[in-house]
Write a protein that binds this DNA or RNA. Structure first.
Lengths: 334, 334
DNA sequence: CTGTTAGCGCCTTCAG
DNA sequence: CTGAAGGCGCTAACAG
């Protein structure tokens, strides 16, 4: 009188003439079963296509083998890279990941976190630090490890593995300033929601000791946004000598804008990206950019979470280094 | 004597002086609770930060509000688009999605499907038709809806929403052939694993009534692959007059290869992409390509799955149309 | 090495 | 409109 069509442990137990516990132990590779019985049980399980019911297991052990991961968007190789590193690590450890995209919307993230917590996950990974204060409060009290990635701050909810965006901006700015550029401009986030980009901008301002002219594309695809914003900057009467971009995709759009405006890069104007994506290598001119350690970040974040879950490690707060990539879209001035 | 720190239904019940069932009904918005009690219970639940335990619910109702989605990779806006449409639809229906990437590896997919089924999901979405025969067999017997997306065939496991890649290739080929091109070449999949691209190639061959010269980049990033494969084609002595590419990213790389080889596009050679991604619009020259209905595909796939789960609909097999995007990377010959 | 007992939190079913 | 009983499949804890 089975309700579902699935084979259960008791079914195997009955058929093998042992108790359910013995089957459970055999299946999980736990000590306390004779080799003969174990082999027999495993064979039977395979034959009957036994699949454990993970919900039932979750209930019995009061926590699941699920980790929740929230990223702003999947239309961005940055997050694809981070996810790639993270998920591989989780998968190898036997965890499945529930991925959600927030579209840079806090309300979406809130809702998702609620729902996710209902699955009693083993841990939680969030992108950045822009969370609803109430959610933050709640997570501070939670008993599961929480990792914040991509951004860096000394006071995370729990664990943090990221980069210092202000410092990355400052370093990139200093390099370009030292090339002799004097009239920098900046293309910001299409949606004005990306606070990491803002901090990079602050770093740039610090390096140049001035406020940069900023263009913020309304919205839409990154390439198109870069194109539009680039045009806007060039048609205003600021005549920038270098355009910093939120990221490499935007930089590509900006590059197109320059070309279309009849400006040669780097002869007439400089263009600078951020992230060091593979895209940069096939651009007409190799992009000056800052390479971010995305994959490693994902791997480290996942490891830190797992370690904490296993009680091995304490809180981890890591700030990773970026690598300057001097390209051909900038050159010494004068 | 609570094991976890979570508030449970019985906790609320005790505090409200009612039975657990009444709380359960109130929380789920089910008839059979007086308005007064319901309001009181809801307020209490909020105050106590009650979160349902989804594993427990899954067990009780013998299926979860989880759907599994498998895509080859996240480094591709095609799948990001499909996912975007799909997940939005699932989310609105109250489902969480467990997304996995297979990296075009069948073994990975197999393992994932096993694991996923252990969560007793409400449904399953797979990309394409290249599954392990045993898995296919197993899913055919499964009682949950299974959707195959992106590709199209008359005999799916269950539901199918995709495009006819052969036909898309044929149409694109016919258009270019009619422009007067006579020496077409093709850049294929970096990993040789993408059977959809192969069928598009077959369609191209049909349109030109000949075998196309083919270059298959070894592996790596799409842009770089396109660049390398483009170079290979140009340095061989086939002197193609048009290069068809697996997708738009590859086409961008190929475009760079042409430029670097001193060939002007479209004057000296034509380049054709596939997918109609936003990238195409900021390329130096607008790309001739075929626009695929990715987002809609995701939405329709999700809807079909949900409808089937609710017993509303029968099997759905849909073949969507692509839209030819004539660009400036090709032009009438002679 | 093996089995028994009890319970995870929720929901279905059936009785009031 | 409300409640009591029982079970989903699994595993911890405790016997033998």
């Amino acid at each position: 009188m089975k309700r579902s069509s699935h084979t259960r442990i008791v079914d195997l137990a009955r058929e093998a003439g042992v108790s359910a516990m013995t089957v459970s132990r055999a299946l999980r590779g736990i000590d306390g079963v004779s080799d003969a019985k174990r082999a027999e049980i495993l064979a039977l399980a395979k034959e009957r296509k036994y699949l454990p019911d993970l919900s039932a297991r979750s209930m019995a052990v009061a926590n699941s083998e699920l980790v929740g991961i929230s990223v702003p968007t999947l239309f961005n190789d940055v997050f694809a890279d981070i996810l790639s590193g993270m998920r591989g690590t989780f998968r190898n450890a036997g965890f499945s990941s529930l991925v959600e995209t927030t579209e840079y919307d806090m309300a979406v993230e809130n809702e998702w976190i609620e729902r996710l917590l209902s699955w009693r996950p083993a841990g939680l990974v969030l992108t950045g630090f822009d969370h609803d204060p109430r959610i933050r409060e709640r997570l501070l009290q939670a008993t599961i490890p929480v990792v914040e990635v991509w951004d860096w701050r000394p006071d995370p909810i729990d664990i943090c593995v990221g980069i210092d965006h202000y410092e990355a901006g400052r370093q990139l700015g200093a390099y370009v300033r030292d090339l002799g550029y004097r009239r920098p401009a900046f293309i910001g986030a299409p949606f004005g929601r990306d606070t990491r980009a803002e901090r990079r901008l602050n770093g740039l301002c610090a390096a140049f000791e001035m406020e940069l002219a900023v263009s913020r594309p309304a919205e839409g695809n990154a390439f198109e946004a870069g194109l539009a914003a680039g045009r806007a900057l060039l048609s205003a009467d600021l005549s920038p000598d270098v355009i910093f971009c939120l990221n490499d995709h935007i930089a590509f759009g900006a590059l197109s804008a320059c070309t279309l405006a009849g400006l040669a890069v780097p002869d007439d104007i400089g263009v600078v990206g951020f992230n060091g994506l593979p895209l940069a290598s096939v651009l007409p001119v190799a992009l000056t950019t800052m390479k971010t350690p995305r994959r490693d970040m994902g791997i480290m974040a996942a490891r830190a979470l797992l370690a904490r879950r296993n009680g091995i490690s304490d809180r981890v707060v890591r700030c990773l280094e970026c690598v300057l990539v001097p390209g051909a879209t900038t050159r010494p001035q004068r």
